[in-house]
Design a protein around this nucleic acid. Structure first.
Lengths: 144, 144
DNA sequence: TATTGTTATACTCTATAACTATA
DNA sequence: TATAGTTATAGAGTATAACAATA
């Protein structure tokens, strides 16, 4: 028997609050890399999923195409993203993270996780194990 | 022996990404209550922590005092927050969630969790148990 | 005619700086 | 003189609507 709907609601409540709270804290802790969260997220998506059209990237990042145009413009201007013509459709373009973009991503991750890592290290091993599993589950939730 | 720093870093990476991703998703899924995330968060804080001065509320919500002034102005205009003079210092004021504010908070939570609850219900009991523990741990992290 | 991407424009949220009232 | 709160103003970030190029 699975848990009751009431229990799901209670979990939904506490989980939502905790996730939003930690997200805000992480956002606040990000160091000065003069890239926004969204720019870094888009760059990371390009790094992970390979070349994408602006439209696909916008869909993946859940923003509107004009927002992605502006966002990608900043990334391109900094040499973090490359732009190549689509092989068969001249309306489209393919965006990809440049080597510089990938390097920045690594460095930025390292710096942004400087807040989180020591706090995880201070937890007990049991709590860390829970979070390792939770990270994967949260990802599935976000993707669903 | 606790885990290595390298393992903490890997967990920090995946956890940060998952949390930020789910937070964005939850934000995107919120229904039309014409209150912003920050307004709801401030209202929830007043509801939870009782009467607070604008300054204390701003500190708690990690925003600057002028931002809180504007934010609270909206809440007050809608009758969601009450404002009473500070008993001993006439410069200060005390903010509190009104009954209407508390009711809206309940209703808003219910509606915003309508996205999350069924997805939690679709998970296995093991995953839910992990998330119950994780929610508490994430809260501790955010508060640290 | 439909689709991809961009430009033009406006709105929301938050910040810093300057100001008012009180301590 | 310092502090609490507000007002004035500006800067990100994202959205919708209108447009250009291509399918």
């Amino acid at each position: 028997m699975s848990s009751s709907t009431a229990t799901d609601a209670a979990l939904a409540s506490s989980l939502r609050i905790s996730v939003m709270r930690l997200a805000r804290r992480l956002r606040a802790e990000r160091v000065d890399t003069d890239l926004s969260i969204s720019q870094l997220a888009a760059l990371a998506t390009l790094n992970r999923h390979g070349p994408l059209t602006p439209g696909d990237l916008a869909a993946h990042e859940k923003v509107q195409p004009p927002s992605m145009t502006k966002l990608v413009g900043c990334l391109e201007q900094r040499g973090l993203v490359s732009r190549t013509p689509h092989p068969t459709d001249r309306r489209q373009v393919l965006l990809a993270a440049s080597e510089q973009g990938k390097a920045l991503l690594r460095e930025d991750r390292r710096r942004r996780e400087a807040w989180l890592s020591p706090r995880l290290h201070a937890l007990g091993e049991h709590d860390r194990a829970v979070l390792r599993q939770a990270a994967e589950i949260l990802d599935r939730l976000a993707a669903s």
